[in-house]
Simulated assay, not measured.
Amino acid sequence: MPATLDAPPASPGRAGAGSDFAPLARQVRASGLLDRRTGYYARAIGLNLAATAALWAAVAWAGGSWWVVLLGVPLAVVSARTAFLGHDAGHRQIARSARANRVLGLLLGNLLLGMGHGWWTDKHNRHHANPNHVGKDPDVGEGVLAWTREQAAGRRGPLRWVARHQALLFFPLLTLEGLNLKVGSALFLRGRSRRERVVEGGLLALHAALYVGLAFTLVSPAKALVLIALHQALFGVHLGSVFAPNHKGMAMPRPGERWGHLRRQVLTSRNVRGGRVTDWFMGGLNYQIEHHLFPGIPRCNLRRVQPLVREHCARVGLPFTEAGLVASYREALGHMREAGAPLRGRP
């Protein structure tokens, strides 16, 4: 699999009169699918908070037994649901005002998860603006993993060994993603305004105090450490498992290439085929093409907008990429193996 894929010729980047995205944008806007679904999100947030409280009550009830550490599994699942809601708040899908969405993002991200809303929003918006574009998309930037052969060739020391075997190491490395999100959130605040440091940093500190304090109060220190480790490891695996199939192995614009909005979002994204269970497991992000084209559309409307997007792509001659969950992982991991191939002595 090549590090970059060919794409149709570029088109205007905005949904202007001559844009191939404009007709689709008008159609979706007229359909009402962009309208806020406050009732849906009120129920989702309420159920999520209730589930979180119930699980910590279960930790208190079962705290005398080592079986309590297994509650780290449902805690990770519920934490991922919280992260998906925070993601939606960051895209202003939930409330009508930017302020209300920011408050929700701070409460869901900083307070409940210990993941900075400002850090995530900054990083994720840059990803949406230039998905899969090396040098512009932080999700394919320099890091532990290499997303192109050029990145892999530049690895030195232990990171070279990681890049050589990264397809095999991918899921084990995701066990550290929960910790990575917290560290990245804290480091992001170093260059921010005093107000951001106070508000976001204060909520992150409050989360840490409440989370660690609750765990060590309800169960013995040894059980608390294992419970926290399992919770955070599986939380990282869950989130990474959702985000991995979305873009890995899809088109990567070459330096200097300029694609219009429709091509930039469709060619770099992969949908994951499935039913309601897949929708729930992936927080709606299995509709990655639709989400990238219309990041403000409420999650519950993504399934309904898909036929409109699929038909429009067919009309303009754009490939609409969709795969099953297992096949999407196979393609993503295949891309990672290909990126590290030269380090294993393969052409």
Score class of each variant (00 low, 15 high):
residue 135 G to P: 01
residue 85 L to F: 02
residue 88 D to Q: 06
residue 127 H to I: 02
residue 154 G to P: 14
residue 93 Q to N: 11
residue 143 G to E: 07
residue 78 V to L: 01
residue 81 R to G: 11
residue 114 G to V: 10
residue 125 N to W: 08
residue 103 V to C: 15
residue 164 R to D: 01
residue 90 G to P: 03
residue 131 P to S: 03
residue 87 H to N: 05
residue 103 V to I: 09
residue 134 V to S: 04
residue 139 D to C: 03
residue 75 L to H: 06
residue 131 P to Q: 03
residue 146 A to K: 03
residue 97 S to G: 03
residue 137 D to W: 00
residue 117 H to G: 12
residue 138 P to T: 04
residue 95 A to I: 15
residue 97 S to V: 14
residue 137 D to S: 01
residue 102 R to N: 09
residue 134 V to A: 08
residue 97 S to N: 06
residue 162 V to L: 14
residue 152 A to I: 01
residue 129 A to R: 06
residue 153 A to R: 10
residue 83 A to E: 08
residue 135 G to H: 00
residue 148 T to F: 02
residue 101 N to W: 05
residue 84 F to I: 13
residue 73 V to Y: 07
residue 108 L to E: 02
residue 119 W to Q: 13
residue 166 Q to H: 02
residue 146 A to C: 07
residue 154 G to T: 06
residue 139 D to H: 07
residue 99 R to E: 10
residue 98 A to N: 15
residue 69 V to C: 15
residue 138 P to A: 01
residue 117 H to W: 11
residue 70 L to M: 12
residue 135 G to D: 06
residue 158 P to Q: 06
residue 87 H to V: 06
residue 105 G to W: 05
residue 113 L to S: 12
residue 153 A to Y: 05
residue 126 R to V: 14
residue 74 P to C: 08
residue 139 D to R: 10
residue 77 V to L: 08
residue 120 W to H: 07
residue 159 L to V: 15
residue 137 D to K: 01
residue 120 W to F: 04
residue 115 M to E: 09
residue 80 A to E: 13
residue 166 Q to F: 01
residue 161 W to M: 11
residue 116 G to T: 14
residue 87 H to K: 03
residue 153 A to T: 02
residue 155 R to T: 05
residue 72 G to R: 15
residue 83 A to L: 12
residue 100 A to W: 13
residue 156 R to Q: 14
residue 112 L to P: 12
residue 119 W to Y: 15
residue 75 L to I: 11
residue 160 R to W: 04
residue 164 R to C: 00
residue 102 R to V: 07
residue 136 K to I: 10
residue 152 A to L: 08
residue 108 L to H: 01
residue 83 A to H: 10
residue 98 A to I: 11
residue 95 A to W: 13
residue 123 K to R: 14
residue 154 G to S: 10
residue 106 L to F: 06
residue 106 L to W: 14
residue 150 E to Q: 13
residue 124 H to G: 03
residue 116 G to Y: 04
residue 133 H to P: 12
residue 78 V to N: 05
residue 159 L to I: 11
residue 130 N to H: 15
residue 101 N to Y: 06
residue 165 H to G: 02
residue 97 S to C: 05
residue 149 R to S: 11
